[in-house]
Amino acid sequence: MPVSPHTLLQHVQDRTTDLRRWLDTGDNTTALTAYLRDEPVDHRWLTTYKRLTHDLLRAVDHARSPRAPHETPTPDRR
């Protein structure tokens, strides 16, 4: 059963909100800065960050993937 574009967009927005809320709690933003600077971070923090990022990227991928195979028109050869 095909999923509507609105539903796919809603999934992307929900995953973005999940990641933003998580980053806004505790010292998660500070830990993200450390991670981006290649400083050691807590394994549990890193696992959560990677899971949330993966979920977001997967939602984006689903939202942009075509529902039917794209066919490139072939030129008429007469």
Rank of each mutant, 00 (worst) to 15 (best):
P73C: 11
L57F: 06
D55Q: 14
T74N: 04
R58W: 03
R21S: 13
S4L: 06
T17G: 10
E39P: 02
H11T: 03
S65N: 05
D24E: 15
P73R: 15
D38N: 09
A63D: 05
T72A: 09
V60T: 05
P75W: 01
R15K: 14
L57E: 14
A59Y: 03
T29N: 04
K50C: 10
A59D: 02
N28T: 10
P66V: 15
H11C: 03
D42I: 02
D61A: 14
D38P: 00
L23M: 14
V12M: 08
P69S: 11
P5N: 15
L36W: 12
V12S: 07
H62Q: 09
R67G: 12
A63F: 10
Q13T: 01
P2A: 12
T7R: 12
R77L: 13
H62S: 01
T29S: 06
D24S: 15
T29H: 01
W45R: 01
D18G: 01
T48G: 01
T72C: 06
T16Q: 14
P69G: 08
W22T: 06
T7M: 01
D27C: 03
K50G: 06
A31P: 00
T17H: 14
T74K: 12
R37S: 12
D55N: 11
L8T: 00
H43W: 07
L23A: 01
R15T: 09
A68M: 15
V3L: 04
D55Y: 12
H6D: 06
L46E: 11
A63M: 13
Y49C: 14
A68W: 04
R64H: 13
V3R: 02
T47F: 08
T29K: 12
Y35C: 05
P2G: 02
P40T: 12
T74C: 03
T74F: 05
D14C: 05
E71M: 13
H6Y: 06
P2C: 04
A59E: 11
P2L: 07
T16H: 04
R21D: 15
H62V: 01
K50I: 04
L9H: 11
A31V: 00
L56A: 11
A68Y: 15
H43M: 10
R78H: 14
H54S: 08
L32Q: 06
D24F: 10
D27G: 08
T74P: 00
L52S: 08
R15E: 07
T7V: 09
H6R: 03
G26R: 08
R44V: 05
D55M: 09
R15D: 08
V41M: 02
T48A: 08
T74Y: 06
L32F: 07
E71K: 10
H62W: 05
L19I: 05
A59T: 04
L46G: 00
D55L: 05
N28S: 04
T29C: 03
A59C: 08
Y49D: 04
H6K: 01
T30Y: 07
R67N: 09
L19T: 04
A59R: 00
T53Q: 12
D27A: 04
A63W: 03
T53V: 14
V12E: 03
P5W: 07
R20C: 08
W22K: 07
Y35W: 06
L9V: 11
R21K: 15
S4Q: 00
Q10D: 00
A63S: 12
R77G: 10
W22G: 08
L46S: 02
H70T: 12
T17L: 15
R58G: 02
W22I: 13
